[in-house]
């Protein structure tokens, strides 16, 4: 990450000039209602900080992240559901703020790609096994009981 991330923090600090006082979620931002606060944490844990770009707003020290954390809490206090709160943010900042991209046309390849790759790989492996069986050399027949006992004998001899 990490090195480049920190470089970015530095650059962001220089560019945007907004080196907030704190880091990440601050005690004074928190809601009194623990259930509501837990929901707020859950939401802000999935929103990307736009200034620093590779942190959640929950983890970020940036000013804008602070504002967004407060905003999320305001929406929840006003009675918005989690999805309404998220919709409020994406209406302003677009899907880019979502660390978990929504499943829709443009992200189908992303979400179903891994499964597709696994299936292609699995089917490919099975086909490969079968072809090898057909084209390959005669497979040795399984050992008979007599052979097995002889092998066992040889092995014990070999060891002693």
């Amino acid at each position: 990450m990490t090195r480049a991330l920190s470089f970015f923090i530095l650059i962001a600090a220089l560019t945007f000039g907004a080196m907030g006082p704190g880091f990440a979620v601050e005690p004074n931002e928190r809601l009194a209602d623990p259930a509501l606060e837990a929901r707020a944490r859950g939401i802000s844990d999935h929103l990307r900080c736009l200034v620093c770009q590779n942190e959640t707003i929950d983890d970020s020290h940036a000013d804008l992240a602070h504002d967004l954390r407060v905003l999320v809490r305001e929406r929840l206090t006003a009675g918005d559901s989690d999805s309404q709160t998220i919709a409020f943010i994406t209406a302003r900042y677009g899907d880019f703020v979502l660390l978990k991209p929504p499943v829709k046309g443009a992200t189908l390849v992303l979400w179903y790609g891994p499964l597709a790759i696994l299936l292609i790989g699995a089917v490919g492996t099975v086909v490969w096994f079968r072809r090898r069986k057909m084209t390959g050399v005669e497979e040795p027949a399984p050992l008979t009981d007599v052979e097995r006992s002889r092998l066992k004998q040889m092995m014990t001899e070999g060891e002693s």
């Binding site: 945007f16 804008l64 967004l68 302003r92």
Partner: peptide, 9 residues
């Protein structure tokens, strides 16, 4: 600013 989607002036 947030309503406009401002993320850096």
């Amino acid at each position: 600013g947030i309503d406009f989607g401002v993320y850096g002036v």
